[in-house]
């Protein structure tokens, strides 16, 4: 039988080359650090079902190539993403400097309402740090992003980053700020909630009045 879940969220992992995007995804899905891996060409994806606030959510995560010129290729997948991990490398000022451009891409191409969490990756390499926690958190605040420092190597805060992003989206659905019914919201109802809806569905076709699953 196919897995059941209440919601499906489309996520993106974006940021400059070599910041550890694929390793974050690998750590989240496999619970392991990917030691020897090729860099990503184009787009790869992975998925995992998580439990957030009593709801099961399937995260469908699109991992993109970081080299500047691939942006013109990868941008086509941004559409309809509900959440994004925006990744820089705390040991590379250059990757931090390009965050604004990545963010603009995400907000214009995916959705202005996309929920973004900023991830300062390679936290384990603290002695080589070029970007302080404070300045990154300030950047996050100014741009209304959530923020965590992560380590794909040790796994620190990796799970948290994905879950935090998912939780925020769920909250926004609950508060009505995000509407899963809207095209391109990056959110779909899963089988479980559909079934629930059908049982409740005296109110049709679908509705504002219908209790949210």
């Amino acid at each position: 039988m196919a897995e059941t879940y209440d919601f499906l969220f489309k996520f993106l992992v974006i940021g400059s080359a070599g910041t550890g995007k694929s390793c974050l995804l690998h750590q989240f899905i496999e619970n392991k650090f990917k030691q020897d891996s090729n860099h990503t060409i184009g787009v790869e994806f992975g998925s995992r079902v998580v439990n957030v606030g009593g709801k099961t959510v399937k995260l469908q995560i699109w991992d993109t190539a970081g080299q500047e010129r691939f942006r013109s290729v990868t941008r086509s997948y941004y559409r309809g993403a509900a959440g994004a991990l925006l990744v820089y490398d705390i040991t590379s000022r250059e990757t931090y400097n390009s965050l604004a451009a990545w963010l603009t891409d995400a907000r214009t191409l995916a959705s202005p309402n996309i929920v973004v969490i900023l991830c300062g990756n390679k936290k384990d390499l603290d002695p080589e740090r070029e970007v302080t926690f404070l300045e990154a958190s300030r950047f996050a605040q100014e741009n209304e992003l959530m923020f965590l420092e992560t380590s794909a190597l040790t796994g620190e805060n990796v799970e948290e980053a994905f879950l935090k992003c998912a939780r925020t989206i769920l909250n926004k659905i609950d508060s009505g700020e995000l509407d899963p019914e809207r095209m391109g919201s990056g959110i779909q109802y899963g089988d479980a909630s559909l079934r629930q809806l059908r049982q409740e569905s005296t109110c049709s076709p679908r509705p504002a009045s219908c209790p949210r699953p």
């Binding site: 080359a17 070599g18 030691q35 020897d36 891996s37 090729n38 860099h39 080299q67």
Partner: peptide, 11 residues
């Protein structure tokens, strides 16, 4: 740019 990929070429 090249150096970033050296360890990521046929590891």
């Amino acid at each position: 740019a090249i150096r970033t990929d050296l360890n990521r070429t046929f590891p």
